[in-house]
Amino acid sequence: MADYKALEDLVVQVRRDILRQVHKVNSGHPGGSLGCTEFFVALYNELMERNEKFTMDGIGEDLFFLSNGHISPVFYSVLARAGYFPVEELNTFRLLNSRLQGHPTTHEGLPGVRIASGSLGQGISVSIGAALAKKLNKDKHIVYTLCGDGELQEGQNWEAIMYAAGNNVDNLIVTVDLNGQQIDGATKNVLPLGNVKAKFEAFGWNVMDIEKGNDLKAIIAGMKKAKEKTGNGKPVCVLLHTVMGNGVDFMMHTHDWHGKAPNDQQLETALSQNPVTLGDY
């Protein structure tokens, strides 16, 4: 049984980390990061089987790939607080000579990151490759991926989605952050995605929804159910219904905070809605 109080505390602290990272450098992507905070916290602290020591090959453990690399603030915070690197390093987000580049990369050797992402649409393909390598290595662990909903507009995803189903890549769980927003506005206005569930199903995936995508209990229960669906010949897709900017009232239900940092006053307001739990970096 998960310690929900501890996980909730971590969620609030990660929100503070996200806000303080982007505020300090007046850039970065808080909206999507906040929307996926509960998912990341649950994934790294409750769902994934992880080895203590980071190795690039990740043999004998579950792997995670972030396809929509712009939500790096939440990724970095959760990695740091899971022990991959010192939390103080969050101070270097987007600064010169930092390992915490604007978008995640292996290039500076940041533990926890296995592929560069940011140019969208590439994460599912990479995850399929890692999943195939696991099968070749007779490694029974799972490969998790997160991608954005707007990101599904990139054609490469559909090449990958077709391949995974056609080749029974069933040790793969792709989670789609279904927040309905992208930089230029609502996805339905920029380029309608249509029925994402029906599309994945038509390609041959096992698809399920987590309607309460910002609720830890719902996420943990849903993702455990998704894991049970692995190993049955089909790749698994989880449609995670989230609210962009979740946890900061003025950032919610809008695309305005996709790639914009709060000013001093806005930061203060946002932090006051998320008081210190585990301690700031």
């Binding site: 690039m56 592929i115 393909s125 490759g129 195939l132 077709m162 056609g166």
Partner: peptide, 21 residues
């Protein structure tokens, strides 16, 4: 691995397969 007529996916899968040696 027969990838089909999907070169972008092929490069991504190849990159992922290096993770695992």
């Amino acid at each position: 691995f027969q990838i089909g007529i999907a070169e972008a996916n092929m490069i991504g899968i190849a990159a992922g397969m290096t993770i695992g040696g």
